[in-house]
Design a protein around this nucleic acid. Structure first.
Length: 336
DNA sequence: AAAGCGGGGTT
DNA sequence: AACCCAGCTTT
């Protein structure tokens, strides 16, 4: 073991966060897999409540493999990036049929499992000496070595470094140690170098240039999108359409939305009342949606009872949640 | 309000 | 290698 490795591992032993998926007295590959897939899209704090609900309802591979996609999506609802949930269900069924993957290569063959997740599950759940690189490891690496690259070039160097520095006797703990350092000490802003266990190994710290790494990426170019959304209501029911493949939120039910001219073409020119504006930002899109209430029973829509919908709100004193999509799952859009 | 971060998939 | 997915946290 190198000095670098022992310094980090000793630090982790004393400072590891107490997370739900680290609690079990025996390591459960299913639990590790679920936590890793959820963590792909967001942070520990956001995942925990979803993870606990999920594991209560789907405690085993078998219970998840038998569940309907619709029900699984309900438990995913709010985590976003719903295609990953569908990939996960497909992969779970593959594992139930074929048995558990026994190598990084076999993990990679499952849909929704990329380099990071394959390394994480193989090492943490199965003790396979596999390296991994996530955003934390990439940042830690860039600072330790003053690597000036960005994007895929930085990632490639970080993978090389992670493989060279893997602690093969306990790869799962080692990998979690690197990520824990990035998440709690070597943070994007205001890193706590004063309490870092490996600052003496860090070129950026030694040179006083921690803030310069990783190198900044070019600013993203925003795309502004303007939509109208028509909330059809008739006799206490709400009329929705299903997003088609290739559209945003494909497969989900939502109020008709689009350019006003498109909506007029599809639904005529019904009497309608403007009820608010939604602003929503996702990836590089700034989406502004003008919301209208429409009293109509247009036959092209599928009609849902209020109790099939989640937190539908079409008027906006204060901040209300407008949820346009159901019954499976949908992003939440906040009224201004 | 803007910037930054995030991992898999596709081409 | 660059873009898409249809989001969240931090500043």
């Amino acid at each position: 073991m190198t000095d670098f490795q022992s310094a980090l591992l000793n630090w982790y032993k004393a400072n590891a966060r107490d997370l739900p998926w680290r609690k079990a007295d025996h390591i459960d590959p299913y639990a590790v897999w679920m936590s890793e897939v959820m963590l792909q899209q967001t942070t520990v704090g956001a995942v925990i409540p979803y993870y606990l609900r999920w594991m209560e309802r789907f405690p085993t591979l078998e219970s998840l493999a038998q569940a309907s996609e619709e029900e699984v999506l309900v438990y995913w609802q709010g985590l976003g990036y719903y295609s990953r949930c569908r990939n996960l269900l497909t992969a779970v069924k593959m594992v139930q049929t074929q048995g558990w993957p026994q190598s990084v290569q076999e993990w990679l063959a499952l849909p929704g499992v990329g380099d990071y997740t394959a390394g994480a599950v193989a090492s943490i759940a199965q003790g396979i000496p596999a390296a991994l690189v996530d955003g934390n490891v990439e940042r830690v690496f860039a600072r330790l070595t003053c690597n000036p690259k960005i994007n895929s070039a930085l990632k490639a160097d970080a993978w090389r470094w992670a493989k060279e520095n893997l602690y093969e006797l306990d790869p799962g703990t080692w990998n979690q140690t690197l990520m824990e350092l990035g998440a709690t000490i070597c943070t994007p802003k205001n890193p706590r170098c004063g309490v870092c266990p490996v600052s003496s190994h860090c070129r950026a710290f030694q040179n006083g240039v921690v803030a310069d790494y990783p190198s900044p990426k070019p600013a993203k170019e925003w795309i502004e999108v303007f939509h109208q959304a028509w909330v059809f209501e008739n006799a206490g029911k709400f009329g929705l359409v299903q997003a088609q493949p290739g559209e945003w939120w494909a497969g989900m039910w939502h109020s008709p939305r689009g350019a006003e001219s498109d909506l007029v073409e599809c639904f005529g020119n019904p009497e309608r009342e403007r009820v608010g504006t939604i602003k929503h930002v996702v990836t590089k899109h700034k989406i502004t949606v003008e919301v209208y209430r429409v009293k109509s029973n247009h036959p092209a829509l599928r009609w849902f009872n209020r109790n099939e919908l989640d937190e539908l709100a079409i008027s906006s004193p204060g901040r209300k949640i407008l949820t346009l999509v159901n019954p499976a799952a949908q992003p939440r859009l906040e009224l201004e």
